[in-house]
């Protein structure tokens, strides 16, 4: 009995002692990377005892919170341009990559059976191509058996990084899309049904005959949706595989992208998937709490080094090694404590 009490007291003491010693990092923002941040945080806590509290409140909320400095770091699916970064005094770096893929529900068509190109995709989402047996689709797919069926366009109803990447691609490949609709986390859709979240789009596409939507590649895989191939910048038809998305990231000119402002759409390279993007972290250049910021950077350094496989398990694509080296160099250069000393 006495032993039990001693053990209980000791464990109680330990339970209080560990969080008191460890520094808890707080972050808030994008919902897309939440599963992987949570998984990294869980493993990191087990290995180092340092916790990470990440609230997935949306990219807009993440930007607002880091501007107000109520969190150690903010997270956004949409990269900020360098003048916006300078205005709120933060640096920006990508953590993981994701691809966006068109998904369809057409009778008799399996994944990879049909290929679309950028212009055709833009015309479908503008409501100009209304039927699956339209000449433009037939021309790209002479051998496919396309039914005479109305196309139901499905898009996101909430603002999202997925929409940002998708409309960025359409704006690059279609001048008409750029002038009529444009590029943002939410746009004025010319046609179609709106669904909340990747899972919402996946769901409506799965149960609506003749539909086409766009989701993160992970959701297409998990929901076993029919995906299309896309014609990339080099004129090759590619599938949205992790390798194709990595190829898009590896070929990009990160070194000349201030604030790592890079949207991996319409990337050059024979194997590159044309609609991809990264999710980003925003961290103050002169953090109010240098200790916490330093811990946050340590956490991300650990995640780049050890988190790749965890990311792959959850269908994210880790950053290429050369980009990680550039990111860590930018930490040393830009993030300083009040005395001007680098904190990483």
């Amino acid at each position: 009995m006495k032993l039990l009490r001693t053990v209980a007291a000791a464990s109680l003491l330990a339970a209080f002692a560990v969080p008191a010693l460890a520094i808890d990092i707080s972050g808030a923002g994008a919902t897309f990377p939440y599963p992987i941040y949570a998984k990294w945080a869980d493993t990191y806590k087990k290995e180092t005892g340092n916790g990470l509290n990440y609230q997935s409140i949306g990219s807009g909320g993440g930007i607002k919170q880091i501007t107000a400095r109520t969190v150690t770091f903010g997270a956004s699916d949409m990269p900020l341009k360098s003048d916006e970064l300078a205005k709120i005094g933060v640096i920006q770096f990508p953590t993981v990559l994701g691809g966006v893929v068109p998904v369809i529900n057409v009778d008799g068509i399996k994944s990879g059976d049909i290929t679309l190109d950028g212009t055709t995709l833009a015309r479908i989402f503008m409501g100009e191509i209304k039927n699956w047996d339209d000449a433009a689709i037939k021309k790209l797919n002479p051998s496919a058996k396309l039914p005479n069926q109305a196309i139901a366009v499905v898009h996101r109803s909430d603002g999202s990084g997925t929409t940002f990447i998708f409309t960025n691609y359409l704006s690059k490949v279609s001048g008409e899309w750029k002038s009529r609709v444009g590029n943002n986390t939410a746009v004025e859709w010319p046609t179609g049904i709106g669904a909340k979240g990747n899972e919402g789009v996946a769901n409506i596409v799965a149960q609506t005959k003749g539909s086409i939507g766009y989701v993160e590649t992970a959701y297409a895989k998990q929901n076993k949706l029919t995906t299309t191939k896309l014609m990339n910048k080099d004129g090759k038809a590619v599938e949205a595989t992790p390798d194709a998305i990595m190829a898009a990231a590896a070929g990009a000119d990160w070194a000349n992208a201030p604030g790592f402002y890079m949207i991996l759409t319409d990337s050059a390279g024979a194997a590159a998937w044309p609609i991809a993007g990264a999710t980003f972290i925003l961290l103050p250049k002169e953090p109010k709490d240098p200790a916490a910021a330093s811990e946050a950077l340590k956490f991300f350094a650990w995640a780049y080094k050890n988190g790749g496989n965890m990311a792959k398990e959850l269908d994210y694509i880790p950053m290429p090694d050369n980009v990680v080296a550039m990111i860590q160099a930018s930490w040393k250069k830009d993030v300083k404590d009040p005395t001007g000393k680098p904190i990483f």
Binding site: I57, G58, S59, G60, G61, S157, D158, G159, S160, T185, A186, E188, W189, G192, I193, G194, A195, K196
Partner: peptide, 26 residues
């Protein structure tokens, strides 16, 4: 969740509260 006014009742539309719920976070 489509910001459109259609004559057809079968067409997608949106309501005030649905718009706020969908779009406020982002």
């Amino acid at each position: 969740n489509a910001h459109k006014i259609s004559a057809s009742l079968l067409a997608p539309g949106t309501t005030i509260s649905a718009t706020i719920a969908n779009e406020f976070t982002e």
